[in-house]
Design a protein around this nucleic acid. Structure first.
Lengths: 204, 204
DNA sequence: AAACCTATCCCTGAAAAACAGGATTTTTAT
DNA sequence: ATAAAAATCCTGTTTTTCAGGGATAGGTTT
């Protein structure tokens, strides 16, 4: 049984590259590609592959939200995140959205094949560099809670406590508490340094 | 006479993709690839292609500096910048370093061919999206004054207006004015989004 | 020389955030 | 079951930021 593979990436060169890397693999069946989220979803209504290689940076919807949506509608499809960026935040968000792995675009053919085969079995695969990033983060990082991450994102977007409170359906006082905890955890003096440190730690 | 093309990109998939896109082109001679700046320079000591497709994000030296170095040593080699990012700062820096064009990685085969052929003649080529970005920029680029940059740095470090004022030997009210102008120039609502936008624009 | 621009400088008052020091309820993990 | 962790909410004070203004020094253009 061949593994049916589909690709979503807005870079034509990457699609061609992956096609070229996989074309001689007998265990792989290339079912097609999409350059945006909309046509990916359209394809899935007709036919479901076993594994989707999904870029995170897409023109219409970002890969993280697309991943969530696909997994919700077609739980049996396994998704591998594909990105140029070896960024903790991306990897984490992709995995939180139900992905079965994460591969960088500088991956070798071997890595790519291993990722696809592992994902097809329902297991999780990370490319070498991505798993290094995950390890580093575990030892030397601040651990933020789900809510704190949400609040941090919104703070960085320039929203005030009151607006954030409305968005998250909580009291402004609660937002203030999360903010306080963020400042403490990241050892920031104020909002400015908070955002700065957060970007340096690639939290946002 | 075939055009000798060489590629520098740390993404294996992109190299494969370009190779695949160009392999049926009779006017192109594929001379090889490098995944980092060092091996690119090593190759050039042996042999000079007509056109180099050069990624901006390389593991050792960045593509901009590599471009400068190559143009200095081998002025007859034409370089086309290759990047995922349609960012003005990248395009500008690449052109300042002597590049003959800029192509995004989502370019079609036609665009890529046109870019190579144009560059080989010594002319300049921009992919559709890149030239749009250049046009947009002419109206909307952010120019900060010396003082504004100083204040921006200190804000991002988490210093308050009062402390910044002491550091720069000016009144807190003046710092505040600079701050206001920064908010206006970067179209930020408050300090948080200011720092965010500034990091995104790589101003700090 | 006059008009002009821009960077730099300064002030006030209202709004927002930071800080201190609590407390209660829900989740999560053992 | 229960302890720890996370998320929720409060009151009040201090500090900082933000949105209005306006003024001056130094260079460029006309």
């Amino acid at each position: 049984m061949k593994i049916k593979v589909f690709i979503v990436d807005d870079h034509y060169m990457v699609i061609e590259g992956i096609r070229s890397l996989l074309q001689n693999e007998r265990s792989i069946e290339w079912t097609g590609h999409a350059t945006n989220a909309a046509s990916c979803l359209a394809f899935l209504r007709q036919e479901q592959p076993d594994v989707i290689l999904m870029d995170i940076n897409l023109p219409d919807i970002n890969g993280i939200d697309l991943c969530k949506e696909v997994k919700q509608k077609y739980p049996s499809v396994f998704i591998i995140g594909l990105s140029t960026f070896n960024q903790l935040s991306f990897i984490q968000k992709m995995m939180d959205s139900g992905a079965s792995g994460y591969v960088l675009k500088n991956a070798s053919q071997e890595e790519l094949m291993e990722a696809i085969e592992t994902a097809a079995k329902g297991k999780t695969y990370f490319s070498d560099e991505a798993s290094k990033t995950l390890q580093k983060s575990e030892s030397a990082s601040v651990i933020l809670t789900r809510r704190e991450k949400e609040v941090l994102e919104l703070i960085a977007e320039g929203l005030t406590n009151n607006v954030i409170a409305q968005k998250l359906f909580i009291s402004p006082a609660t937002v203030d508490t999360h903010r306080k905890n963020l400042l403490a955890k990241l050892e920031a003096k104020n909002t400015a340094s908070l955002v700065r440190i957060a970007t340096q730690l690639q939290l946002i």
